[in-house]
Amino acid sequence: MTHSVVVPIIAASVPTYAHPGDAGADLVATQAVRLEPGERSLIGTGVSIALPEGYAAFVVPRSGLAAKHGITVVNTPGTVDAGYRGEIKVTLLNTDSKQAYDVAVGDRIAQLIVMPVVRARFEPVEELPDSVRGDGGFGSTGYTQGKSE
């Protein structure tokens, strides 16, 4: 079952979902930029939204750009809070060590995922309850199936 929420928007190009069931709507560039190897740039999308309370939007990379060209989003996911009304901008990074990448106006550069969020109430305690995992992290379950490290 698909859930939806109405999000008021001001945009030259309204984000669209490429396929039914997609989680992310494509954001497009409003400016042309050349990203040299290792270079990053803040790129406008022309999109401003008014999320309802209890929602946040997350800007994430497009998998095709990452896999084919080494283009990713710095500070991913970028969080758009419900109270923010400014333009959503995307900081792209060219991770390719040899090839420059040209972004043209209208290119799909990132995805926007709108999700409900829960506001936590943090409660200071002296000790945390036990769990099966405990404090294991950073590779504690290993890197290959059946092999712990």
Rank of each mutant, 00 (worst) to 15 (best):
G136T: 15
I10Q: 14
G54W: 07
K68Y: 08
T72W: 03
A67L: 14
V117C: 01
T79P: 06
S140G: 10
V7D: 01
V5I: 15
T45H: 08
A66C: 09
T141S: 11
D107M: 01
S13R: 15
V90M: 01
T79C: 10
S48T: 07
T76V: 13
V132K: 13
K68G: 03
A11C: 03
Y143A: 15
R119Y: 11
R121F: 12
V74C: 09
A56H: 13
P129H: 05
G46D: 08
Y17E: 06
L92Q: 00
R85V: 06
G38L: 07
L128Q: 07
G21D: 05
V90T: 00
L27K: 07
L128E: 07
F122L: 14
P61G: 04
A57Q: 06
G24I: 07
A104W: 06
G137H: 10
Y84A: 00
L65H: 00
V14Q: 10
V105Q: 06
K98H: 15
G54C: 12
Q111F: 04
R119N: 11
V28T: 14
V60A: 13
P20F: 11
P52M: 13
F138V: 07
I10H: 14
T76F: 11
T72Q: 03
E36Y: 07
E39M: 13
I113L: 05
G137A: 12
D96L: 04
D130R: 12
E87S: 01
A11P: 01
D107L: 00
T72S: 11
D81M: 08
A104R: 10
T144V: 14
V6G: 08
A18V: 10
R133A: 10
L93A: 05
T76Q: 08
G106P: 03
E36N: 09
V117G: 02
V114Y: 04
E39C: 06
I10W: 09
I10P: 05
I88N: 01
N75V: 08
V103E: 00
P124V: 02
I113R: 00
Q31T: 07
G24M: 08
V5M: 02
L112Q: 02
P61F: 12
D102P: 00
R85T: 11
L42P: 02
R40N: 11
E123N: 11
H69M: 05
V103D: 00
M115L: 14
D22V: 09
R108Q: 04
V33W: 00
Q111Y: 05
G86D: 14
P129M: 09
A100R: 03
H3S: 13
L92A: 02
V125Y: 09
S63L: 13
D96E: 06
V74G: 00
K98P: 00
G70R: 06
G46H: 12
T76M: 10
T45F: 03
L93G: 01
H69W: 10
